[in-house]
Design a protein around this nucleic acid. Sequence first.
DNA 1: GATGAATGAGAATTCATTCAT
DNA 2: GATGAATGAATTCTCATTCAT
Lengths: 225, 225, 225, 225
Amino acid sequence: MPLSELAPEEDRAPRRGRRKEARPGELLDAALDLFVEKGFAATRAEEVAARAGVSKGTLFLYFPSKEELFKAVVRENISGRFAEWEEEFKSFEGSTADMVRYCMRVWWERIGSTPASGITKLIISEARNFPDIAAFYQQEVIRPANQLIRRILQRGVERGEFRPLDIEYAVFSIVAPMVFLIMTKHSLGACVPQEYPLDPQRYIDAQLETLLQGLCVRPAAGGRP
Amino acid sequence: MPLSELAPEEDRAPRRGRRKEARPGELLDAALDLFVEKGFAATRAEEVAARAGVSKGTLFLYFPSKEELFKAVVRENISGRFAEWEEEFKSFEGSTADMVRYCMRVWWERIGSTPASGITKLIISEARNFPDIAAFYQQEVIRPANQLIRRILQRGVERGEFRPLDIEYAVFSIVAPMVFLIMTKHSLGACVPQEYPLDPQRYIDAQLETLLQGLCVRPAAGGRP
Amino acid sequence: MPLSELAPEEDRAPRRGRRKEARPGELLDAALDLFVEKGFAATRAEEVAARAGVSKGTLFLYFPSKEELFKAVVRENISGRFAEWEEEFKSFEGSTADMVRYCMRVWWERIGSTPASGITKLIISEARNFPDIAAFYQQEVIRPANQLIRRILQRGVERGEFRPLDIEYAVFSIVAPMVFLIMTKHSLGACVPQEYPLDPQRYIDAQLETLLQGLCVRPAAGGRP
Amino acid sequence: MPLSELAPEEDRAPRRGRRKEARPGELLDAALDLFVEKGFAATRAEEVAARAGVSKGTLFLYFPSKEELFKAVVRENISGRFAEWEEEFKSFEGSTADMVRYCMRVWWERIGSTPASGITKLIISEARNFPDIAAFYQQEVIRPANQLIRRILQRGVERGEFRPLDIEYAVFSIVAPMVFLIMTKHSLGACVPQEYPLDPQRYIDAQLETLLQGLCVRPAAGGRP
DNA sequence: GATGAATGAGAATTCATTCAT
DNA sequence: GATGAATGAATTCTCATTCAT
């Protein structure tokens, strides 16, 4: 048995033949990056393949067309974690303000700061070229996300922590700053270095401060925001 | 005197034939629409020409390349109105909360609700393909806009109307909802009809409500903003 | 009678409306220059018009197509002077060597040094794209020219001035240096300045020297070269 | 051992399919032919591809643009054989007249009669559209060629075989007939069949006869040339 | 399975030619 | 007659996709 076979595959020079099962994933990662960076139309299939370390032909071995690759990228990066999050929130013990804080921070940790955040920019940029993908994303991500936030706001109002709200539209007070942060990160933030990137902690703190004071009932005096 | 003579010349210009003066504008309008809708790469030059009612060749008579057309679209739609707005705000008499309200509403009227709003989506989507245009836009639009808002917030804080703020980042509490509204309008909002479009008045009112309560000092008691 | 009419037309500012009858000629001159410089296909009709100081439309007013313009250029620059030259030579009194000298020098004066020399380069470059023009040129220019030279050589041989020659092919001993000089002038000579242009007098003298010694009978005795 | 194994590999290569090694050469050959025939501008890239038996796309796989193809054609057909020829001449034993004869005949065999001769017509026709290529050709081909001929003439003069010459310009007495023969072959000669083609042996013999008698010292006495 | 040479439909761009003014 | 805005056929070049190896 040659020594080379003892080393884990990826530790060896990955010149050729990496873990086979990993290829589609690497292609999807590369595709996400490039689609986010340049848009669907301006991304060349060969570039995706090159970044994934395979040849052009291999890309089409796993995905029948560039469009199918796009769909797979969206599917792959759709957070299917809403059920899990609903659970976390159902058993949440603290104040609703804390829920909102937790919500934004955990979102940043698990989504916003990861490459998956790019999917948001991608969908926004490409929605009108792929209306069915857009509808799918609306269905699978945006609607559940909004629903989750709506429940939080409802809880706040019901428990007398938040003032009466136009809940349907108040949702966007939470969503907009998150979307804005992502858009910034993936567009201007990636190419106008003297002004960006924003500091995400400071950004989220600043938004939360104003947001929560804006949502909470104004007490004779107020607890910490 | 026939009524028709009251109409400005260009309204009676021949639908086809010589109209050198009008062409570039029509092409820029068509291009803005299509670039916003499909992105730069996915928009065919011939489509732009067709939408402007001219032939492919005519487009290249006025713009030496598709890329120059893109740049011209951005240049054309850059709001050079910040000086004017600064003026309006300098002489503003009311409360700073009213300034913020005025700011968002007037923005919607003059920018958000017009086709020019598309430029924001366009820049965000294409920034990384056109970094110099992005830098230019940052310089000419974003920086002055942020500066304007920063001044408003400063005024609020200085006059004791707003609580102490991380002004640099508090700016985004005003910008984010506006950008989000535009993005919605130009992406999902244009292709997932069952959930959109948002009602802009209601949206702006809801955001202002939370935003202003979030910014203002908490009074012992307070009239609603 | 207005004063302006006294001045010769071309002396006045030729901003607009030059001598009408002159236009086709100016177009032909411009076209010859540009066709020689860049070739037929690489010359744009608008450039020809611009160099002639008229608009694109005017060009097509005088010549129904770019190809017809080309044909007119060739026709215009065809030396119809062979009859006249035949005459000159018929009554020529001196030695045949002097005829040859006279021939090359007069050719340089009347053709080689003028813009009309470009037609040779043009024909050589474009012959295969315009075989009928090539045939026409062969018929109208090359054949008579060769005929003229053939007669000179014949005279030299008949009078015992020249040695016996393969007259048909000896013609090229006179033609080749002239064609070469023109080709040099209009191609490399126009763009490799450190080696060119050749000095035409010196060139012609050098060629004549060798040529005539080569043609003349060797005075006393001589091994074949 | 089967005979077929003696044939070089590329002779047995499949007419279609993978032939990366052979493609550029085939394309260059096709391009040389067509550029010589029709000129650079009038030759369509697709035609070149078709003549090489491949598709449009394949051409651009090997050459990034039509202009680079042109440059490659010139580079490919530049005779790098001057060193070798210098060698042949250095060790030449016979008379200088024989050298001149050998020179023209060997030139016809190795260059003039091959497709590579087209490069001369190509350069002359396109020099002004590609001045840098022209300069390169001047540098790499014309200058060494002239140098070679200059040395021959010098040898003739030094050994008392040739009369005193304006060597710089006498070079053209050898070059001009060769260039003329090539130009004839590739332009009128290819499209006015009733007068052409010239018989190269007869042409070269006729030129040599006159040329050498013109160069050699006149044996006993001499009338003025 | 993987590759990359080859393909050809499609997009940007050019430019001869037309024609309303 | 002259103009130059407009046209669209023709051309260069790109790139998703195929397929022989």
